[in-house]
Amino acid sequence: MSDILKTISFDHVSIERNGSAIISDVSATLSEQRIGIIGRNGSGKSTLVRSLNGLLPISGGTLRVHGVSSEEGPKRLARVTGFVFQNPDHQLIFPTALEELSFGLRQIGVGKREAKDQGFALLKDHGIEQLAERPVHELSEGQKQLICILAVLIMEPKLLVLDEPFSSLDLRTRAALRRKLDALEQQIVFVSHELDALNDYDKVLWIEEGQVKLSGKPGDVIPAYQRHELFGADFHFAGAAVS
């Protein structure tokens, strides 16, 4: 059996947002290292992955992330799950990259001086120590997103969740950041509309209307999703789509 300390398990999980069910009765066990999540806008992808960090409480069922149960509260989930958001401008809280990185360490109780040193060391590991003191609003989108990822990684999460993190980046920057992600030892859950990026993943979940429509190898799930979305029923802009 798979190691429970390295596994995400959804057991009949439901999640409500503003009184309506966004995720209903999802059960899945994710023990693979690289998990992709695909689906339409408004399908519930973002809602589902937010529960992994405790950002959204589940309203039914049980969720376990690397040995932590949802019943232990959102903070315990946040401690094992790092979350990278779509827009770095919403995630970068501090005026400089170094402060951003040391913030995460301060959050887990590391002393001021040590947090700074470790933050600088991590920037140096990635060859961007010259960005340490630069105001973050002057950085490129790719640099900003890299800082976001490092600011999360420095807290040593066991699971890294990324919610469409590369949607405003050019091809080259995406590829460079993806190589950084590939090298990580953490389990990764990656929500993306770039289907090609998920071809090398171990497992892909296709979410539709708050449920898992299909899950399995990318070679099976992605083509099925494409056929369904491109050659399925006609698209109506008037249809409900709240994201």
Partner: peptide
């Protein structure tokens, strides 16, 4: 959004 990002890393008071 910013509040969400802050909560994702332990909130204003930390872990």
């Amino acid at each position: 959004h910013v509040a969400e990002a802050l909560i994702a890393r332990g909130g204003a008071d930390g872990f």
